[in-house]
């Protein structure tokens, strides 16, 4: 057979070079994450492809937004106003509750929680990857997004940022196989870790002893340990407990509270320099200038 390449390396040596390069990239990036910092630059380079890929969805959304009947708009408006009134009434109580909470914490010398800045982002695309549950959002490093920033929606925790480009970034969902989030049960403060399962609406709670006080329907909230997710945000609700005495631990499954299959608007919490863990009360007072030395 006539060789394809008359000049330069033969087909086999090209294959060898390219396979070695691929394996090298795989090992360095897959196992050791060498290219993580370069990722944002690389993603910015391929962003034209993503931009064009997102155009049809953007056009469809814009046109359906325009082609909506006035009657529908009026009913939607009324429902939103009602919801807003109720939320504002609740908010009045929230301010006083927050002040009371701060006073109580000062008295007990417990850590004080600072109010975290929030940023709204919109979902651009769900990642076409059956092996890893990630979504793309339309905020990037120019908006102040940073790696491991927590992401929530209106119902619960969605995940954390894993990849930041100039104008877009990638969110790893809580139910991805490689994700784990420290939680505690709202009812009795039992500390657990919720691992992703690879399925969108399922979390696995591993290493739960048979004697642990868990019940179906328990709400899991973030415990703040690990310094990635701030404390107190709802994560999931326990859906199934199987206590098989033959196994060393109980098998506990939970359903994430965030609507992971219907994500649209997401909130990004925190800022890069701001610590997510609460400050010690005395430290906070020194910063505020309360203590007179």
């Amino acid at each position: 057979m006539k060789p394809i390449f008359n000049r330069g390396p033969t087909l086999e040596s090209r294959l060898f070079i390219v396979v070695v390069l691929s394996l090298g990239l795989l090992i360095s990036d897959g196992l050791y994450g060498v290219f993580k910092p370069l990722r944002s630059l690389l993603t910015t380079l391929v962003s034209p492809v993503q931009y064009i890929a997102s155009l049809p969805a953007v056009f469809l959304d814009a046109s359906t937004d325009r082609i909506i009947s006035q009657e529908q708009l009026i009913t939607e408006n009324e429902a939103l106003i009602q919801q807003l009134v109720i939320l504002q009434a609740d908010n009045q109580r929230y301010q006083s509750l927050q002040a009371e909470n701060e006073q109580l914490r000062k008295l007990l010398d417990a850590p004080i929680q600072t109010n975290l800045p929030k940023k709204v982002a919109e979902l651009m695309a769900v990642d076409n990857n059956p092996y890893s549950l990630q979504v793309l959002i339309n905020k990037g490093s120019i908006n102040g997004v940073f790696n491991t920033q927590p992401v929530i929606d209106d119902q619960g925790v969605v995940g954390q940022i894993v990849d930041v480009a100039q104008t877009t970034s990638r969110v790893l969902l809580v139910s991805d196989l490689s994700h784990a989030i420290p939680v505690r049960i709202l009812r009795n403060n039992l500390r657990l870790i919720a691992n992703g399962s690879g399925e969108l609406n399922l979390l696995n709670i591993k290493h739960v002893p048979h004697s642990a006080d868990v019940a179906e329907g328990d709400i899991l909230i973030t415990s703040g340990l690990g310094n990635v997710f701030p404390e107190g945000y709802p994560v999931a609700v326990i859906s199934q407990i199987k206590r098989d005495e033959g196994r060393p631990f109980a098998m506990v499954k939970a359903t994430p509270l965030a609507r992971l299959d219907r994500l649209r608007y997401l909130l990004l919490l925190g800022q890069q320099e701001m610590p997510l863990a609460p400050l010690n009360a005395t430290e906070n007072r020194v910063i505020k200038g309360d203590i007179n030395e």
């Binding site: 394809i4 090209r14 390219v18 691929s22 394996l23 090992i27 897959g30 990857n129 092996y131 890893s132």
Partner: peptide, 30 residues
Amino acid sequence: VNLGLAFACGVILDILLGHSLGLNSLALVV
């Protein structure tokens, strides 16, 4: 269009899909 272009396109696809680099390029190249 041969192995070099396949490798480059594979790396670009990896970046787009969020896989570790080298995944699609290895499969495409083979």
